[in-house]
Computed example of a mutant assay.
Amino acid sequence: MSERKTRRQAALAPEAAGTAEAVDSYAKSSPQGAGDDKSNGNGQAILSSRSGVEFTPHENIFLFWPNIIGYSRIVLAIASLYYMPLHPRTCSILYSISCLLDALDGYAARYFQQSTRFGAVLDMVTDRCTTSCLLVFLSSAFPRWAIVFQGLISVDFASHYMHMYATLAMGGSDTSHKNVDKSRSWVLNLYYTNKVVLFVCCALNELFFIALYLLSFSSPLLSPQLLKPLGETRAAAIQTGAQVNSSVLRQLFTNPYSAGALEMARANKMDSTWPWIMAGVSAPIMALKQFLNVVQLVKASKWLAEGDVKSRREAGLPKKSRKNT
């Protein structure tokens, strides 16, 4: 066995030597010398030439672990929206897991060294969309306060868009939106650089809206319709469910009303004590988060305005008008 292995190594020796000589010759032919050869840490040489081309393994950004976690968040968020009208417990669990995974994708990005701009944008877009969908439901659950929830959605989207655009336009495409200089805003610097502060603010902000969602099913104080008896006619309608004309749709999408009747009855009997406690504890942090959104919007607007002033000066604007002589 060892003799056969020795013969095989002897046969491959000239080929290996030829390859080594070719690599060595390629490296020496470079004006920068053999010292320009690099290693990727896996025993594979990466050759650099005058053209600057490096032979590195292909990476699929879309399959990075942080981005896969981001896709999972989207699936969970969509599932929570499906159960949102009639299944408060199921919806709250799915929505909460989706929000908690927001912290896990950042940890995965640092652990696997897979921080990407696509991942950062995916994370921010997912956060904005999920919160907005919940606020839209709260607008329908509490019509009197719909304008407040609409305002929160607008400020949230506007502040993050303005901040992201200002960072890219003024700081450069390689600058992260979390790199906020203290001289520009110390409170935003603390918010984005301190992971504990960032997690607490985001988590309790979502917790407040989840608490309001649960109170819409359990608190007669906020939802007076819970005090009204269901009635035999309405109960029969819920048990029967909405009729779907297409048999194909009836097979693909099961009727949520018949399945949700029992859940609705349980929700009406839900004790509102814990949702009220959750809302009371998280309300100050929610208010702080909205204040930070306003600060972020104002600071980003001023930063863009400073850039506009500088650009106009460099362009010589405003140009003095010449009077006709």
Score class of each variant (00 low, 15 high):
Met1Tyr: 09
Ser2Ala: 15
Arg4Glu: 10
Lys5Pro: 00
Thr6Arg: 13
Arg8Ala: 11
Arg8Phe: 03
Ala10Asn: 09
Ala11Pro: 00
Glu15His: 05
Gly18Glu: 12
Thr19Ile: 05
Ser29Ile: 04
Gln32Lys: 11
Gly33Ala: 04
Asp37Ser: 12
Asp37Arg: 15
Lys38Cys: 03
Ala45His: 04
Leu47Arg: 13
Arg50Thr: 12
Asn60Ala: 14
Phe62Met: 09
Ile69Asn: 11
Tyr83Val: 05
Pro88Ala: 04
Thr90Ala: 10
Cys91Met: 13
Ser98Arg: 04
Asp102Thr: 04
Asp105Arg: 05
Gly106His: 01
Ala108Cys: 04
Gln114Trp: 02
Ser115Phe: 00
Ser115Glu: 08
Thr116Ala: 09
Val121Met: 10
Val121Cys: 00
Leu122Ser: 02
Met124Arg: 01
Val125Arg: 01
Thr126Ile: 08
Arg128Cys: 09
Phe137Val: 07
Ala141Lys: 15
Phe142Tyr: 15
Pro143Met: 09
Ile147Val: 14
Ile153Ser: 10
Ala158Thr: 13
Met162Thr: 14
Thr167Cys: 06
Thr167Leu: 01
Ala169Gly: 02
Gly171Met: 05
Asn179Gly: 01
Asn179Asp: 15
Asn179Cys: 12
Val180Ser: 02
Ser183Gly: 15
Arg184Glu: 14
Trp186Tyr: 09
Leu188Met: 13
Leu190Glu: 01
Thr193Leu: 03
Cys201Tyr: 00
Cys202Tyr: 01
Cys202Val: 05
Ile210Glu: 00
Ser219Tyr: 07
Leu221Gln: 11
Leu222Ile: 11
Ser223Gly: 06
Ser223Glu: 11
Ser223Gln: 15
Leu226Cys: 05
Thr240Asp: 10
Ser246Thr: 13
Ser247Ile: 03
Val248Ala: 09
Pro256Gly: 01
Tyr257Ile: 01
Ala259Glu: 08
Gly260Ile: 03
Gly260Asp: 02
Met264Pro: 00
Lys269Met: 06
Asp271Pro: 06
Ser272Val: 03
Met278Asn: 10
Ala279Pro: 11
Ala279Asn: 09
Val281Gly: 06
Ile285Trp: 07
Ala287Val: 15
Leu288Ala: 13
Leu292Gln: 06
Leu292Tyr: 10
Lys299Ser: 03
Ala300Cys: 01
Ser301Glu: 00
Ser301Ala: 14
Trp303Pro: 00
Leu304Thr: 02
Ser311Ile: 06
Arg313Asn: 07
Glu314Gly: 06
Glu314Thr: 08
Gly316Leu: 05
Leu317Glu: 14
Lys319Leu: 10
Arg322Tyr: 08
